[in-house]
Design a protein around this nucleic acid. Sequence first.
RNA 1: GGCGUGAUGGUCGAGCGGCUAAGGCAACGGUUUGCAAAACCGGUUCUGGUGGGUUCAACUCCCACUCACGCCUCCA
Length: 473
Amino acid sequence: MIRFFNTLGRRMTEFTPIREGYAGMYTCGPTVYNYAHIGNFRAYLFEDLLRRTLEYHGIKVTQVMNLTDVDDKTIRDSRAAGIPLQTFTRKYKDAFFEDLRTLRVEPAEHYPEATSHIPEMLNMIRQLMDKGYAYQSDDGSIYFSIEKCRNYGQLVKLDFENQRIGDRVRSDEYAKDSVADFALWKAWDENDGDVKWDSPWGPGRPGWHLECSAMSRKYLGLTFDIHTGGVDNMFPHHEDEIAQSESANGCKFVNYWLHCEHLTIKGQKMSKSLGNFYTLRDLTAKGWSGAEIRYLLLGTHYRSKLNFDPDALGTARSALKKFHTLFARLNTVPAGDALLAEAKAASEAARAKFADGLADDLNIAEALATVHKFTKEVNGLLAKGAGHDAAVVLLDQYRDFDRVLAFLDVDSALEAADAPKQDVPAEILELAQKRAEAKKAKDFAAADALRAQINAAGWAVKDTPAGPELSKL
RNA sequence: GGCGUGAUGGUCGAGCGGCUAAGGCAACGGUUUGCAAAACCGGUUCUGGUGGGUUCAACUCCCACUCACGCCUCCA
C-alpha cells in the first residue's frame, strides 16, 4: 500500500489511482527567465522521487511538467536584453533540461509550453465566460470571479474579509471586482512590446494559472491523480487552478495534492528576490557532481525544510565514495557460489523494506537506512568469503535501489575503478613507481621520502590491494 | 492580524504510548598496514525547546509558553 500526505484534507491517505496500475501526474515546472536555483531543483527532485517510487511499485506514470515561457518576468527580461521572447526563453529551457540531466531526473512524458497552448487556454476562457465564472474588466482583461466559485479555498484557509492587504494587491486591484479575483487573460499594454496573441476579447496574453488548467486537461484529462509543487504554490496558484478547472469542467480536478517544503539557506527561504541562492551550475563549477547534489537534496523528507549548507556536500561525497569502493570490491570477488543463498535472502529482505519505506509517503530516511544496513550485511558476507555468484546478486540489488535513488551509479563506479587514472602527471607516476620499488626493497626511509615528495607536489598516494593509487590533495 | 509547519545527540536526520531512541557524516577505539591512508569492525556522546496535563507508562497524545520558518496574489 502506498500512502501520501494529501494537502487536500491534510491527512495521510492511501493512494488509489483512478485507473489501476497507472498514475497521471502534473508537476508545476519552471518559469524560464533565468537559471533555476537548487531550491527549485529540490522540488523537481522530490517529483522525480515520487515518480520513481510509483514506478518501483509497478505503476506506469504519465507525468506532465509545464514550461512557463510567457509571463511578466520573461517579457521584462527578454525586452531588457533586446531579444525576442522565444529566443530568450529557448536558452533557459535548454539549460533547464541540461540541469535535469545533471541531477539524473527521469524525463517527464510531456513538457508543454504555455506559448504553444494558447488555443487550449482561450477555449477554457470561453467556457468560463459562457458559464458565468469570468468577466471582462474595463482594460480588456478577463478575470475569474471568486464569488461564483463556492468551493474556493480547498487547500488553504484564507479569510478574505480580514486580510492584511499588501502593496502588491493594491497596485493590481484597480480593474477587479474582488481582491482575490485573478486574471485569465491579460490585455496587452505597451510594456508587453510585441508579445501578444489575438483573442475574442482583444489582444493579450494568458494569465499564469490558466496554463496548468488547460494543459493538464489536454494531457491528463478532466480529473487526474496527482498534482505537485512547492508549498508556495498552494496559494494562490493551485487554489486558482482548482477554481478554474472545476468550474470549467464541472468535476473534480485532482485527487492527491503533494507539496514540497522549501530549501532554506541560513534558515531563510532560498529565492531569487532575496539573492541568497545557488544555481546548480554554481555547485558543479566548484567540482560537486550531480550525484552528490542529488544525494544531499533527496536526503531530507520532502515535507521538511531542508537547510542547505554547502559543506554538507562533503558528507555526500564521503558516503557515496564508500559505496563505490564496495562496488569495486564486489566486482573482483573470485568465482564460486559460496553464500549465494544468503546473498539472495539479504537482497530480497532489503528490497522489501526499501519499497515499504518509500511507499510510506516517500520516507527516504527509512529507505536509505535500509540501504546502509544492507551494506553492513554485504560487508559481512564478503568477510565470510562470498563468491562471485553472490557478489553478482548483491551488486544487482544496488542497481535495483538505484532505479529510485539514481546516485549510487553502480556501473559507472565499476568503470571508473577499471579505467586507469589518466590525469596524473608523468613525473608523479614516476615518483610513485620509484616508491613502490623502494617499498619492495624494504627501504622504507626512501619510500617515505618519495611519498613526501609526492605530497609536496600536491598528490596523495594510497596503497590499495590493487597497487598504489594517486589522488589530488 | 489570519493561517500553517517545526524544535531529537558534534552535525544531518528517522521511527515509536512501554524492548538498550534508526541510519549517514564527524570524532574515538580496534583489525589491517613497515608507518600511513583507504577499507572493515565496535562501543560511545543526548533523555528528546520550556512548563504543565492525561496515563500504570510519553520523545511519541493534550494545553500553554518561547523560539524559528513559511503563506496571505512574483516565487519550487
